[in-house]
Nucleic acid binder design. Structure first.
Lengths: 396, 396
DNA sequence: ATAAATTCTTGACGAAGTTAATTAATCCTG
DNA sequence: CAGGATTAATTAACTTCGTCAAGAATTTAT
């Protein structure tokens, strides 16, 4: 059931995108301030902002008193109208679908999930369409309308090699897919404009717009969990890799002759610090082949030295991988996140220690943030991609 | 003795730079062809090319017969006039200065070098000015003029943290310099416009314009020798690093608990595969504390298994570093070069073997070129930076 | 010759930004 | 409290850089 595209402010010029993203990411700002921050003339900002205001994406706040002292006409800050439009984000994992509805600021307004009983394309498309239907069933948060009529963009995050431009999943080991034109299948099934992105890159987009990446022209996001991955932003652009592969920090070799990795290499970060690798090692050192991750965490926290060393070893491997990344890239900031970071009390110290030793020169000055991440956050990243599709030129 | 700037075609618009670099890097091309390759309209190419032709940087070749069959007006290919202007490139090492004069295609037309007897700034500036004077003393290669009157740009390559935009050497461990405004000192001393760049990045520029990097939107250059470094080009731009550090592949940790590195870390690529590290290890395994590098190479080539393993170990470390780089970046091509590659028969195999095992998925498909590099090439890289300063906007 | 194909040039136009002048809204001062 | 100082926003004229469409130039094919 394809539907017609909504009435939109056509965002064509570079300046328009610049102005809009500045307001989006840096909160209410006056036109002159936007001009100062972006290097545009204030006249250009005035012109660029107008269509957005008319379309309802931006609004002009009343100059509620003066914040900074001094003479002069007070500013009329521009602000996002977050409820103008809603966005759907869905993260596809091996086991289930996690979906959210967000506003224009990528704040989550509703969420739902759905178990997957299989991995064939038809089933996943069907389940995803169901999930979207469920998410959009209710009224809008402000009660003035139906979500269905105010959400046009769907963002989908999948792990693996994803060609965002064409909307094709080129290769997803988790799902066992090759060259699946998922975006167009989903557009047909949901009636929404669909944008596909690699899951870690989607999260990086969210982080770049609304999280730790704000204001940094280069930063890296590292996710630790079942797998270990990363996404790199240089000069404001995601690094995609000539062959669709980039940011594979999980397969950076850090321990020469270390444990074999499923990728065929040895001593990869992922072979030491993924959830599975940690559990395998914990079972081995404890001699208990049925030890659960939960128990291992409890005991390590309780002071079990052998188990603590397993976690520290994972932290060490991550620290080495981070050092490799930072020495090669020199990002301004690095965020470490993911499910695995839930137990970060067990390895944060070691990550920082190893990183401090191995980071070269002033590269070590980069801001290193280690922070756990609610699972829903992945879906929020997908929604951020949907938002991005609204106002960023195609060739991202 | 500052001199007035030469009459130049002002290269301001993006299109002008695009057209010029296309002709520069892709040989004689017709206007229509330039338009097709760049996405510009052919009218824009005509307009953009005119000032360059008038200024003598480009010329229009006679359409010497038709190359491709078919009807239609034959093309008048645009070509570089390499002898319009000459460029000086100088590489500063710890021991000496190596200088070249090149034409606009960065082909070396003259070269000279000069020993350094000290590292204080005044001495180096003085020696460099002498070297430039010597290089520019003769007539131009075409005999029509003096080099002195046809060379205006000087490019200087230094290892360390160099701020190209301001022309300041922020930190050079080799020279023991901090915050030296070398560019302006050299402009005063030589009368040429001086551009500074990190040595590896300069080489990468040469490679990008005239070497293996041509046509690749992302590639990496790795140099192996006394130090081990790299430069990364993503989307046609050099990665500079937020704190001036990037491309430090030499300090990527690849051997957990490996030999200590002078950077304070352990198991860095440089601690295993630099010329010095190889020699240290060779002396250790052979038990001959006075073994020379030359002898070690001869014996390894002769079949000395212990020594062969030392070189293979270096190749292995380099292969691991390359895998880290490629897994994180996914460049289209990688070039490995530098003095150390002179003995590449002793480790090329091992580099490729290790790389093939540790490179992840299709990242392994990147073109890996291992190629020794004449020492003069470093100076040619510096000259390429000078050429670049002619027609690339300031904010590189 | 004449037609078809292809390259290059030209001039009108339009998009997007700039600068400079104008209008607007506030504070400060005597 | 009037008038000036100061800062914000808007407007209008202009600049720059590109596209488009038409046509001139130069060849091959018939």
């Amino acid at each position: 059931m394809p539907r017609s595209a909504p009435a939109r402010a056509p965002i064509t010029s570079p300046a328009a995108a610049t102005v809009f993203t500045t307001v989006l990411t840096e909160g209410p700002v006056s036109r002159v301030d936007v001009a100062r921050r972006t290097g545009l003339s204030s006249a250009a900002v005035t012109k660029a902002a107008r269509p957005f205001i008319e379309a309802g994406y931006l609004e002009e706040l009343a100059s509620e008193g003066r914040t900074t002292p001094g003479a002069g006409r007070p500013a009329n800050p521009l602000a996002i109208r977050p409820d103008r439009e809603y966005f759907v984000g869905v993260k596809i994992t091996g086991d289930d679908l996690i979906g959210v509805v967000t506003d224009l600021r990528a704040d989550v307004r509703a969420s739902a999930h759905h178990a997957l009983t299989g991995h064939d394309v038809e089933h996943v498309v069907h389940a995803l369409a169901d999930l979207v239907g469920e998410l959009l069933a209710g009224p809008t948060p402000d009660g003035t309308s139906n979500l269905r009529d105010r959400a046009y963009c769907l963002g989908v995050a999948v792990s693996g090699d994803v060609d965002r431009a064409s909307g094709v999943v080129r290769y997803s080991p988790f799902l066992g897919w090759r060259d699946v034109p998922l975006a167009s299948l989903l557009e047909d099934a949901t009636g929404l404009t669909a944008t596909l992105e690699n899951d870690v890159k989607a999260l990086a987009v969210a982080e770049q717009w609304f999280g730790e990446g704000v204001g940094a022209s280069s930063f890296a996001l590292v996710t630790v969990g079942t797998g270990i991955g990363s996404a790199l932003v240089v000069n404001g652009d995601l690094v995609r890799g000539a062959h669709g592969v980039a940011g594979e920090i999980g397969h950076v070799p850090v321990a020469d002759g270390g444990p074999a990795c499923h990728c065929g290499g040895r001593g990869c970060v992922e072979a030491i610090a993924s959830t599975e690798a940690i559990l395998t090692r914990a079972r081995s050192v404890s001699g208990e082949s049925a030890l659960s991750m939960e128990d291992a965490v409890v005991r390590a926290r309780g002071g079990d030295e052998l188990l603590r060393e397993v976690f520290a070893g994972a932290g060490h491997a991550i620290g080495l991988g981070l050092a490799a990344l930072v020495n090669l890239f020199g990002p301004e900031r690095v965020v470490v996140s993911g499910e695995g970071v839930a137990t970060y009390d067990l390895f944060e110290d070691q990550i920082r220690r190893t990183f401090a030793v191995q980071a070269f020169g002033s590269a070590a000055r980069c801001g290193l943030v280690i922070r756990p991440l609610p699972f829903e956050e992945w879906a929020r990243g997908a929604a951020a991609v949907a938002i991005q599709s609204l106002f960023v030129a195609e060739s991202v």
